Amino acid sequence: MIEIKNCTVSNIENALRGMRNPLDSWEKSDSITTDGKFILGPNDLKLARKLCAAGSDHRKFLRQIFVSLDITAPLYWWKEFDTYKVGTVANSTSTMHTIHKKEINESLFSCEKLDAERLALFKNYLDQIEQLRQQYLIDKDPELWIQMIQLLPSSFNQLRTCTMNFETLLNIYHSRKNHKLSEWRQFCDMILKIEYFDMIAEISSQSL
Rank of each mutant, 00 (worst) to 15 (best):
L119Y: 09
L181S: 05
L69E: 01
P142K: 04
L16G: 04
G36C: 01
E106V: 11
S207L: 12
Y136P: 08
N171F: 03
S29L: 12
I71E: 00
E195V: 02
L51Q: 15
D189Y: 05
A120L: 07
P153W: 05
Q147P: 00
D44F: 10
L75I: 14
R185Q: 15
F109G: 08
M96N: 09
N157F: 00
T34P: 00
Q206D: 15
Q64R: 13
E80F: 07
I129E: 12
G87V: 07
S94E: 04
S155K: 00
L170A: 04
D189R: 11
L51R: 13
S110Y: 11
T34W: 09
P22N: 12
S207T: 10
E117D: 15
E183Y: 05
T72N: 01
K177T: 01
I2E: 01
D198I: 00
Y84Q: 01
L23Q: 13
T98I: 03
S31D: 03
W184F: 11
E195R: 12
E167P: 00
Y136F: 15
T88S: 12
S25P: 03
I12M: 12
I99Y: 10
I65A: 03
E130G: 10
R176M: 13
M164Y: 06
H97Q: 08
Q134C: 15
I194R: 07
F197W: 06
L45T: 13
W184T: 02
Q186T: 14
G87E: 05
S94K: 06
V89I: 06
Y125T: 05
K123V: 10
E195H: 11
M190F: 09
Y196Q: 04
A201L: 01
Q64F: 14
R20D: 02
E103P: 04
E3V: 00
M1H: 04
L121W: 07
K28V: 03
L16T: 13
D82E: 09
L51T: 10
I71R: 00
S25M: 08
L169A: 04
S204Q: 10
H174Q: 13
E106H: 07
Y136M: 12
L132C: 13
N11A: 08
C52S: 09
L192V: 06
E117K: 15
I99K: 10
D189W: 01
W145D: 05
T88H: 01
E80N: 12
L69I: 06
K123C: 08
L40Q: 07
F166L: 03
Y125I: 07
R133V: 14
I200W: 03
G87L: 03
H97M: 05
P42R: 12
Y84R: 04
R160Q: 10
N14C: 06
K28F: 11
R176V: 02
I200L: 14
I146V: 13
E143D: 09
S68W: 00
Y173E: 02
I4W: 01
E202H: 15
D82V: 06
D57Y: 13
F61G: 09
Q64K: 14
D139R: 08
T98Q: 08
N14Q: 14
E80C: 03
N6D: 04
E143L: 09
Q206F: 10
E112F: 13
A120P: 01
V67T: 02
S107C: 07
E130R: 12
A48D: 11
